[in-house]
Design a protein around this nucleic acid. Structure first.
Length: 222
DNA sequence: TGCCAGGCCGGGT
DNA sequence: ACCCGGCATGGC
């Protein structure tokens, strides 16, 4: 690749500025959001979280005590509400049973260990686990998502068939272990994906990374 | 108006 | 170890 990842980051940051992802929110809110946002627009997630906040349920024990049907209704705007209600309850049960409902206690666990534990919870996959570790626990773990894959593969920086851990290693091995950097970089990639590197009708010409595209424009998947 | 959004699971090759 | 259908609401 013609530019290092750090140069890519700098370019994005200078063009788009800080994204302020999950800054003033409580760690628990981030945990809940990480599940609710699965394959879903963040706008929809905000409505669901607003419902929880209005009902004073943004607390592990409180939310764990809500009846499943009530939880479904509260998070309905986030979509997949029956699936996500079950996933959320699995995660809440884990936090309450394993860590006495204390996120502080949970995040005192070694990152690699906690990651494995989270992956064992129903409904928590690699991206959800890593989002919790990075954005709620402030642990130096790079979060990979659909946008990360799309932006990097269209520039030829990774193959279209690159898997989660391959991409994650790519970032973690070529960037300093820095929570703020990982946080901001991932948020910037999502922003680029939303604004320019779209699935249909991409606006590559206006993208801050336009000069870094291969000759002839973005690569297309086979 | 369809298409898409910050995935993951379960069943099938 | 992949591949695919299912899951659901709201915005553009």
């Amino acid at each position: 690749m013609t530019a290092t990842l750090i140069e890519v980051y700098k370019r994005l940051f200078e063009a788009l500025g800080p994204q302020h992802w999950w800054p003033g929110e409580s760690p628990f809110e981030v945990v809940v959001g990480a599940v609710l946002v699965q394959n879903t627009n963040w706008k929809n997630v905000e409505r669901a979280i607003d419902n929880l906040r209005r009902s004073d349920l943004l607390d592990p024990h409180a939310l764990n005590d809500v009846r499943p049907e009530e939880l479904e209704e509260l998070i309905r705007p986030a979509g997949y509400y029956r699936i996500k209600s079950r996933r959320l309850r699995s995660l809440l049960e884990f936090i309450v049973e394993r860590y006495d409902g204390s996120l502080e206690q949970m995040f005192a666990t070694h990152p690699a260990t906690l990651r494995d534990e989270l992956l064992g919870v129903h409904g928590v996959g690699p991206e959800t686990a890593d989002s919790i570790l990075l954005y709620a626990g402030e642990m130096p773990v790079f979060v990979v998502d659909a946008y990360t894959h799309r932006v990097l593969s269209r520039h030829g920086w990774i193959g279209f068939d690159a898997g989660y851990h391959e991409i994650q290693d790519h970032f973690q091995s070529s960037l300093p272990q820095d929570v703020a950097l990982y946080n901001e970089f991932h948020a910037l990639l999502v922003r680029v994906g939303n604004r320019y590197c779209r699935k249909t009708r991409p606006k590559c010409g206006e993208c801050p990374l336009a000069e870094l595209l291969p000759d002839g424009g973005p690569l297309q998947p086979e």
